[in-house]
Amino acid sequence: MRRSLLFLPGNSPVMLQNGAVMPADALIMDLEDAVAPDQKDAARLLVTSALRSLDYSQKIIVRINAVDSGHWQQDLSTLVPCGPDAVMTTKSSVEAVKQTAELLTELEQANQIKPGTIGIIALIETALGVEQAYEIATASERVSALFLGAEDLAADLQCERTKQGAEIFYSRSRLVLAARAAGIDAIDTPFTDVQDDEGIITDAELARSLGFSGKAAISPRHLSAINRIFSPQPEAIRSALAVMAALEQGKREGKGAVALDGKMIDAPIAARAAQVLAAAEKLGLLPE
C-alpha cells in the first residue's frame, strides 16, 4: 500500500532522521529539486548514511536527477547498494525509464541484488509525459506507479497552478487511465499549502474520486488526512463484507445469480468488494 508518500530533502539530516517516525507509507528521499547542484554529493552521502543507520518501516523511494542532468548515474551507483524499494525518475520519458532500468540492472548485478528488485516510479511532469503516460508506464516491468508532478506540469502547460486544480484535471484523469491500463498505481501530486488543513482534505478526496491510489505530501501535517482518505472507509468495508457474505451464501445454495438488498451482485461489484477487503486487510481494518 502506498497511500501516502512523504518527500524528504536529501540534504536535511533532521528531516531524514525524523522521517523514520512519520506515519507515511513511503518516503521519497529527494536528490533532485531539493538539493542544489553543488550539494549533490553531500546529499547522496547523507541519504546513504540514513538508510544504513536508521530503521525505516516505510517503503523507501529515492528521487534521482534527470537523465540529462549529469548526476543520475552517480545517484544510482551510490544508492542502489542501500537497496531502496524504488527510484523515481524525473521528467520521465520512455527513453529515460529504459535507461534507468538498464543501469539498475547493471548495478543490481554488481551489488548481488536480484535483478528487477528495485522498482521505478515515473514522475510525469511535462505535457509530453502526460501524452506518453501509457508508453512510459509500460516501458519497463520495473515501473510500479505513475506519479503526477503538477507544479512543473503547470509551467509546461503555461498556466497558473491553482488550489482547485482545474488546470490539471485532464492530466490527472489521463494519468489514472494510463496507470490502471498498465496495471500499476497512480499517485497524485502533493498539495503544496502546508498551512491549509482543509484544502488537503478537499484535494485528496478529489484525487481519490478520480481513481488515484495514493498521494504525495511535502509536509508531515498532511499525512493523516491522506492516509484516512486513501484507506477503505468503514461503510465501504461493511458493504464489501456483505457482498462477499451474500456471494458465499449463494454459492452454498447453488444459485447462479445473487442479489443483495434487491440488487444483483455482478462481477464488477464482486471485484470491487474484493479490492476493498484486500486493502482493508493489509491495513488491519477488518473487524475481528
Binding site: 525524523n18 517516525v21 512519520m22 509536509s219 508531515p220 501535517r221
Partner: peptide
C-alpha cells in the same frame, strides 16, 4: 508547535 515531530 508546528513542528511535525512535536505534533506527533
Amino acid at each position: 508547535t508546528r513542528d511535525p515531530v512535536g505534533l506527533l
